[in-house]
Nucleic acid binder design. Sequence first.
DNA 1: ATCGCTTTTTGCCATTTGACAAATGATTTC
DNA 2: GAAATCATTTGTCAAATGGCAAAAAGCGAT
Lengths: 189, 189
Amino acid sequence: MDKFIEYILQFGNLNKQQIDLIRNKGTEIELRKDEYYWEAGKTVKYIGFLTNGVIRVFYYDNKGEEITRYFIDENHLILSGNTVDEVYTPSEYLSAITDCTLVVFTRKDWKDILDTIIGWDSIVQKIITKHHSEKIARRSELVSQDGTERYLDFIQKFPTLVNRVPLSYIASYLGITQSSLSRIRKNIR
Amino acid sequence: MDKFIEYILQFGNLNKQQIDLIRNKGTEIELRKDEYYWEAGKTVKYIGFLTNGVIRVFYYDNKGEEITRYFIDENHLILSGNTVDEVYTPSEYLSAITDCTLVVFTRKDWKDILDTIIGWDSIVQKIITKHHSEKIARRSELVSQDGTERYLDFIQKFPTLVNRVPLSYIASYLGITQSSLSRIRKNIR
DNA sequence: ATCGCTTTTTGCCATTTGACAAATGATTTC
DNA sequence: GAAATCATTTGTCAAATGGCAAAAAGCGAT
C-alpha cells in the first residue's frame, strides 16, 4: 500500500486525511503465478495497482495465436479502459507471470475517492497519459527494427524483466519466434 | 473552421458564444506540399487542427534513416506533447505530404480559450486520449505481422491514404523496405 | 538421485526480406 | 514534347527469419 501512495504522490499532492481515505478504501490482494487478473469478455471489477510481480497482457490474433502485447511490472496502475466511469469488458487477458501483489479498489470505492479528493481526477489522468506515451514510444520503435535490435532494445528498457519472463513471451512481444530469439541471444554473447 | 467546430462538438457541448470565441481565435493557414509544420528541435508555436491534406510524422533513427512514425489525415488535432501548458520542442518532423489546410491557434489564444470555456480542458483531454489509444492499437498490431499482413491492415485502416501517400513512406511506416512493399503489392493483385 | 514436465537450444530447410543496382514508369519543367 | 527529376518495379544474391522436430537443459516433486 505504501508503494501505491508513494507512486500517487509523484503526480500530485495529498494531505494526510486524503492519504488515509485511500488507505481505507484499498485492499491488498495476491495473485498466483498463471492466474488471470482480467479475462477477455469478463467484466472488470477492480481498479488495481501492481506492487509486486509481473503481469502479461495478451490476446489471440485471427490465427488463434497468443500475442503478448506488453508487460506490466511493479508500480503500475492497471486501469480498465481509459476511463473509470463505465463498466469495462476487456478484449485482452491479463495473467500473472510471477506471483503478484496488488492494491485494488472496487469501482464504488474508487468513485468515492474521486468524489472526495479534489484533483484525484487530474492525477489519474496524468498517469494514464504517461502510460500511453510510454506504450506508444516502446511499440513504435519495434516496427522498424530487426530481431537483434528489438531484443537489445528490450533488455535495455526492461532490464528487470529479462530474467523473470519466459523467452516465449518476450519473443511474442517482440514479434519474432521463440527459436529466432534463442539464436539472437546466442549471437549476442 | 467549420470542420474544427464540428469535430470539437463530438467531444462536448458548446454554446454559440463559446463557438464564436473559438472562431475568433483560430486562423486558417495553408501548408504546401513538402513544407514542414514542425521541425525537430524548433519550438512549436501553434496548436493546429488539420482540415485538409495529409501530414507525415518522421524522425531519424540512430543509423540516420528517416522513419515515418505515422500519418495525420483530415480532422485531426495536432498537439505539442501531451499538454498545452509548456513550451514544446519536438524530436520529430511533421511535413506535408499534400497541400494542407489547417486551423491554428497561438499558445496565448489557446490559453484564453482554456480560461474562458469551462470544460475545454476535458474536451481536449478526451481527444488526446482517443488519439493515444488509436496510435497504440495501430502500431501494436504491426509488430506481430509479416509484410503482407501489415500492408493489408494498412489499406483497410487508411483507405483514403493509400493513393495519396508515396510508397516509400508507407513502407517506412510499416517497417519494411520499399522494394519489399512493391513486391507485396504485386502479389496481392 | 531420478522421474516427469516445461523451457530453451539446435538442426535442417523453405520462405521472406534486405541490400544494391538497373530498368521502367510517371511527373514536372522549360 | 524533350529533358530532367522523382517514384516504382524488377532482378540478383545474401542474410534473416519461420516452421517443424528433436535434443538438451532446467526445475520441481518424490
